[in-house]
Amino acid sequence: MEQIIIFLILLGVGYFLGNRREQKHYEDIKRREKSTLHVPLMSWGAKQELPYAHDAEMFVGSVVVANDYFKTVSASLRNLVGGRVTVYETLLDRGRREAMLRMKESAMEWGASQVINVRFETSNIGGQGQAAGAVEIMAYGTGIR
C-alpha cells in the first residue's frame, strides 16, 4: 500500500510540475523565437558555395533536459503497446528548440547576420532501467558577419 502511495505521489509530482514547467518553457521558447526571427539559420550541403563573409565563427548551443516520472511511466506503458511516444516528443522538441535558440542568441550577440551549416547532436545521460534520465541536445553552426 505504501508503495502505491509513493508511486502516486511521484506520478503526481511528475505530472503537475513537469507539465507546468513544459508550458512555461514553451511560452519562453516561442517568445524568443519570435524576437530572433530576422536572422536566418541555414543547413547547407557540404559542397555548396558559402555566402561571402568578413568573419566566421562557430557557435554552440547545448541543453540538458530531464525526463519526469510521469513521462517515464507513460513511456514504459507505451513500450507495452507500441506507437508514438508523445510524451517524449515534446521533451525532445523543447530540447532542440532551446539548444538552437542558445546557439542563435550567442551568434547574434557576436553580430552574426546569418548562421549557416547548422547541425544537431543528441545524446542521453544516465537513466538506467526505471530511473528517469535526461537528454543532452547540442546545436552548432557557423555564424557569419
Partner: peptide, 20 residues
C-alpha cells in the same frame, strides 16, 4: 507544431493504462 502530436498527456496516459 509538426513535431508534436496534439494529444493531452493525461488522455494519452489514460488510454495506455486502460489498454494495458
Amino acid at each position: 507544431e509538426v513535431n508534436i502530436t496534439p494529444v493531452h498527456p493525461l488522455v494519452n496516459f489514460g488510454y495506455l493504462v486502460g489498454t494495458v
